[in-house]
Computed example of a mutant assay.
Amino acid sequence: MNDSPPLSPLAQAFSQGPAWFPQQMDAATDRVLLVRMSEDAYRTASFLDQRMLTQQSQPQWADWAELETADQSTRRDAHWILHIGHVGSTLISRLLGELNGLFALREPQMLRNFADLAADRGEPHAIWPPDLHDARLETAVGWLSRTFSQDDRALIKASSFVSEIAKPLIGTERKALMLSVSPARYIETILAGDNSRQELAVLASQRLRRLHARLGSADWELWNLSEPVRAAMSWLSEILALDEARSGVSDAHVHWLDFDAFLADPVDNLAEIARFFGIDPDTMAIAALVDGPIMTQYSKAPEHGYSRDVRESLLAEARKAHADGIADALTWLKDAADRHAAVAAVLDRHMPVNMGT
């Protein structure tokens, strides 16, 4: 005899598939915020975080345990786009989302919640014991793996700092596209925009904390780092997180790509990414996508125009305006490589030619 209480109408609706999306969780109260989403809403959304919350999305809280009971899906097969930030991940996600067989989701807030919790995993003050944390992360991957068509595969573009939990996200069967650029290009990109500079100011402290934890020593004080050096430090913090996640994962499950290399030959690179994710690309469809409006829009706000030429112009301006600061930042990276073998190794892998490109 089953004495379990009946499921609420919300939990029953959640069990039917991705029309109710688990937008975020409150770990302290074991609740999940669900929002109503159509397939087209997923397709157009640049972010699945707090910026998507409107009255039209009908946000409603539900108990984690009830949702776990309601969800009978066995899918845990989402693939990933992981990146260091400002490296075309949204653009590539939008392009791939137009291909048959892939269902693109961008920056689910719940993954950020788990990345925050992971910093305390195993600590006495953690909200959950390690085994429950790991099990719930896998449950969340399952919820995010749900698609409207069983023939589709979810492709999730995470936020950059979600790379701290990249290894369990990939697991043993899922695949990840890992996107980066060289340090110089990354620094130029950050310094080229007001929004990226503001983001740098907000995230620099967290990134330095993560970098120190990964290297096992506190070598630098944030207040002594200039803005360009903070950008270099951010590149290093994020690339080391991805590089660590890459270790121990089969080569068949990770595809590294430099965004500048992608832009140099987007048709062939997009086709190669599609094949990596198990999609047999239609050459004409790929070419049409590359020649279409997605490549000339600002991916995070498609109502605004943006193109490769515009990007190059902005980067050239930043390179000229901040030449001395960028040189100092690259010198800082060289000094960090002299101090730490892990930094030297990652620079050698991701910048084998020289520090200025």
Rank of each mutant, 00 (worst) to 15 (best):
S180C: 13
A287I: 10
G216C: 05
G292H: 03
P228K: 13
D258G: 10
H212T: 01
E238F: 08
A232W: 06
N195E: 15
L225D: 05
L225M: 15
Q198E: 07
A288G: 14
G292F: 11
S160H: 13
V162H: 03
L208R: 03
A241V: 01
G248M: 12
A287F: 04
K157Y: 07
D260Q: 10
P281I: 07
R153F: 10
L225K: 14
L191V: 08
N224P: 05
I239P: 07
L215Q: 01
I187A: 01
A232F: 05
R197S: 14
E238C: 05
G248W: 00
L169G: 10
L208I: 03
L242S: 05
L191A: 07
P183C: 00
G193K: 06
A232T: 04
W223M: 07
N195G: 04
N195K: 07
S180E: 09
L289A: 12
L169Y: 09
R185G: 12
S205I: 08
A192P: 11
A245G: 15
A285G: 01
L155Q: 08
E238K: 08
D260R: 08
S217T: 12
S247L: 14
L270P: 02
E188H: 08
K157A: 00
D219V: 08
A213R: 11
D265W: 02
A252H: 14
H212A: 09
E238S: 13
F259T: 01
D251F: 02
L177R: 08
T172Q: 13
A213W: 06
L222W: 02
A204D: 13
W220Q: 13
G171P: 05
M284K: 11
A158V: 15
I273Q: 13
S196M: 12
P228N: 13
M284F: 01
H255V: 07
A288M: 06
G171C: 03
F262Y: 12
I286Y: 02
R174L: 01
P183Q: 04
S159V: 12
G216V: 06
R207Y: 02
S159C: 12
R197C: 12
T283L: 09
Q198D: 06
I156T: 11
R210L: 14
D243Y: 05
S247R: 15
S226G: 08
L289I: 10
R210C: 06
I165V: 15
D251K: 14
V181L: 13
I273M: 15
V290H: 03
P281A: 02
F262A: 03
V290E: 00
L242E: 06
E227T: 14
I286N: 01
A252Q: 15
F161D: 05
